[in-house]
Amino acid sequence: MTASTTPCWKRRLERFVALGFGLLVTVLAWAGSIQPKGAEVVPDERGWAVNAEFDVELGARLVDAVGKGVPLHFRFEVQIKRKRWYWIDEHLAGRVVNYRLSYQTLTRQYRLAVGSLYQNFDTLEAALTALGHIRRLHVADAGTLPQGESLAAAVRLSLDQNQLPKPLQIDALANDDWRVDARTLSWQFVPQPEPQ
């Protein structure tokens, strides 16, 4: 008596394909992203400042790397331009701020640093929340932005892959797990004079 094994193998293949698809969806769900939630240009004591908020999610590979002591560098960029129909847009103001996120194994805390200034956090989520909240960052001196004229502003927070250790930079070229999708938020605004 002979028995056919084709239906058994067919079911196993279907289960394997379904499992592979499930894993792919899980990996894509764990891919990192930095989504802008909102931003504004506001007057400050020296001229103009920017407030911005981002939702920062790191992929599983980056979470693991920072937990093992690999520092991650982030770059916040803001640009303010005047649109011109007859030529390229005129750059009026801009600023770039570099952040460094690291894990301190002795204190078991995450450290978010800007230059020589830093703040410690007990959890990675708290550090990423602080990274995503930019408040009153001075971007332009008084008199730099023309009053009453429509201007274009754009902000972006991104992972700086060029600051990763060299072996990880090479791995990041071929592996999407090291990438973080970062979007630019652009909007129009009209600077208003400060009430006297």
Rank of each mutant, 00 (worst) to 15 (best):
Q196N: 11
A29V: 00
Q104H: 12
L58Q: 03
R75G: 02
N175F: 03
L124T: 00
D89I: 14
Q161S: 08
R108D: 01
V41K: 02
R179V: 00
G47F: 06
G67D: 05
V190H: 06
Q104N: 15
Q104W: 11
A127K: 08
R12V: 14
A130S: 05
N120R: 09
L159T: 00
V56G: 01
E125C: 04
E57W: 10
F21K: 12
K68V: 07
F54Q: 01
Q79W: 10
S150Y: 12
L62C: 10
P146D: 11
G20R: 05
A29N: 02
V25Y: 05
G20I: 06
D64M: 07
I170F: 07
E14Y: 04
F16W: 12
G20A: 02
L58Y: 02
K83T: 15
V17S: 03
L145K: 04
F16C: 15
T6Y: 11
M1Y: 12
P195N: 10
Q196R: 14
H91V: 10
V78I: 06
R136A: 15
T2A: 07
E77D: 09
A140P: 06
A152Y: 12
L151I: 02
N162W: 08
V17A: 02
W178Y: 00
T129G: 07
D55E: 11
S116E: 09
V41M: 00
V42I: 01
P191L: 13
G132K: 03
L101V: 01
I88R: 12
P193C: 11
S158K: 00
